[in-house]
Design a protein around this nucleic acid. Structure first.
Length: 494
RNA sequence: GGUCUUGUGGCCGAGUGGCUAGGCAACGGUCUGCAAAACCGUCUACAGCGGUUCGAAUCCGCUCGAGACCUCCA
């Protein structure tokens, strides 16, 4: 199967149409991908891992089938308002005061932390990672354009988008399915609403109250941009007025993405996004994750196991594999049992990968490798069905083990094909990487181990089971697992 | 309350209107000095109640459960 075939077969579930559609990029061989990135005022947690891994997979697969992809993932580092106690106060500004640090210092601290966690999860860095604070001019420009077109109004120094007018001209709610009248009926009256003509209107620019530290001079007031405008401004700047894929979590569907549709439609005169993709949410033991529920777990806590909910530490690759073992549009529940099962399964696939170079070719093949490869591509082309792909990899693992045990054979050509494809799907596309333990197998370790295995072999030859078992058990305690096979003993580091 | 999504075997998790995904766990077998690993086999589920159909886990309706969103938080 070549790239052209796969490009033609790829189907993506489009939130706009609520069905799978053939993916046809606007420009041949080029794809523009925009994903809503993190708001940097806290440690990265599971809620960050899911979209990051999901769209990393999309990024990787699109590249694999031959597209040149520009992947833009923003960093939101301005304009965060808290909803609880300190109403109207910028989230970053609040933290800054509490900790006596510059707002940008806080943002930088958490950006670094986010990057470290994403690197650990083997999430590729995007092509461009623009910061909202670095695009204030572009955002103001976008607000001006919307004002000029007559779809926004100024009220007490703030600028609001006129949703009712938009609804009349273009129809509101295409993405989320919201009906404007129902929205208005359901909106409670809240402080500050009197500035708006209509409760469904949203801010494009907010006048800063005195406690705001992050503020910029604008034609309307000294203030800061509304939340939704940053994505519209930055996606337009880097991907153009129309681009292929916009992704994010389902929690962003409304109002954030719906508002983006409004803004870009007015500012650019056309709908800008062709395919909207939304990953589903995560839960922990069936509950949503929240600080108040006591199940808020950061990624570092997962990696180290330092949270009361966790029975053990889970490596970054275990988390990644676990995320990929569920389809991105389904909810994903984290539990110790499920993570443990994923970890074991993942280990099995690593073991199969390690076996591949050791396989001996036969004169015929018992399985059709090309058909297997086809099934792998079919899975990916079906809206990135990674659980299906992983099931195929487990099938391959069974083949690999059987060939290794001499219970099956494959020709040299098929072995090369199998090796190449297994590695491509497991490492390059799913983005699994060897974890530290495996990389620790230095030459010294190898020499020491071969000495120890030699001693045990002697002991076994002399039927000295006490010594042989002691070596095996003590090594096991140290995290080194011995595997006795007909060809001799091998070892794995855990 | 409203909008949307979702409910699959002990656990996780794919799925096409008819052809028993896969993983983990459990149990049996082969192999092994024993064990682990590996391989083979067993465990045949689709929230509940109706309806459409020759046939539904898959389509429709209702009920129950879960989740997301419904603020100028991002």
């Amino acid at each position: 199967m070549n790239n052209t075939d796969n490009q033609a077969k790829l189907e993506i579930f489009n939130t706009l149409s609520k069905k799978k559609e053939h993916f046809v990029p606007m420009h041949p061989n080029l794809v523009g991908l925009y994903v809503c990135g993190p708001t940097v005022y806290g440690e990265p947690h599971l809620g960050h891992a899911r979209p990051a891994v999901t769209f990393d997979l999309v990024f990787r697969y699109l590249q694999h089938i031959g597209y040149k992809v520009r992947y833009v993932r923003n960093i939101t580092d301005v304009g965060h308002l808290e909803n609880d106690a300190d109403e109207g106060e910028d989230k970053i500004a609040k933290k800054a005061r509490l900790e006596q640090l510059e707002p940008m210092e806080i943002a930088q601290f958490y950006i670094d932390s986010y990057h470290r966690a994403m690197d650990a999860l083997n999430v590729k860095r995007p092509s461009i990672e623009p910061r909202a604070s670095g695009h204030i001019i572009e955002q103001m420009d976008m607000v001006k354009r919307i004002l000029d077109k007559g779809f926004a109004y100024i009220s007490n120094g703030s600028v609001y988008f006129d949703v009712a007018k938009f609804d009349k001209e273009y129809g509101y709610g295409k993405l989320s399915g919201r009906v404007l009248d129902e929205l208005i009926a359901n909106t409670r009256s809240l402080d500050g609403q009197e500035e708006k003509h209509n409760p469904a209107d949203f801010a494009l620019w907010k006048k800063a109250s005195p406690e705001h530290i992050m503020r910029w001079e604008s034609p309307w007031s000294n203030g800061f941009p509304g939340w939704h405008i940053e994505c519209t401004a930055m996606s337009t700047k880097y991907l153009g007025e129309q681009f292929d894929i916009h992704g994010g979590g389902m929690d962003l569907l409304f109002p954030h993405h719906e508002s983006e549709v409004c803004q870009s439609t007015v500012a650019n005169g056309k709908e800008s996004v062709k395919y909207w993709m939304h990953n589903n949410m995560i839960t922990i033991n069936g509950q949503k994750m929240g600080k108040s529920l006591g199940n808020f777990i950061t990624l570092n806590e997962f990696f180290t196991g330092s949270h009361p909910t966790l029975k053990q530490a889970y490596s970054p690759m275990t988390i990644r594999f676990f995320v990929l073992q569920a389809h991105y549009r389904g909810t994903l529940d984290f539990s110790n049992d499920a993570l443990l099962a994923a970890e074991k399964g993942m280990t099995k696939l690593y073991a199969a990968a390690a076996l591949l170079p050791k396989l001996k070719a036969g004169d015929h093949s018992d399985e059709n490798i090309n058909e297997w490869i086809q099934r792998c591509y079919d899975a990916m082309n079906d809206d990135f069905n990674t659980p299906k792909l992983i099931a195929e990899l487990f099938d391959a693992s069974r083949m690999i083990n059987s060939i290794h045990d001499g219970k099956m054979t494959a020709t040299k050509a098929d072995l090369d094909l199998l090796t190449n494809s297994f590695n491509t799907f497991f490492f390059n596309i799913l983005g699994m990487k060897e974890e530290l333990a495996q990389n620790n197998q230095s030459e010294y370790t190898d020499q020491l181990m071969s000495l120890i295995l030699e001693i045990r072999k002697d002991a076994k030859a002399n039927k000295n089971w006490t010594i042989a078992d002691m070596i095996r058990d003590k090594l096991n305690d140290a995290g080194i697992v011995l595997k006795d096979t007909k060809e001799g003993t091998t070892y794995e580091l855990n």
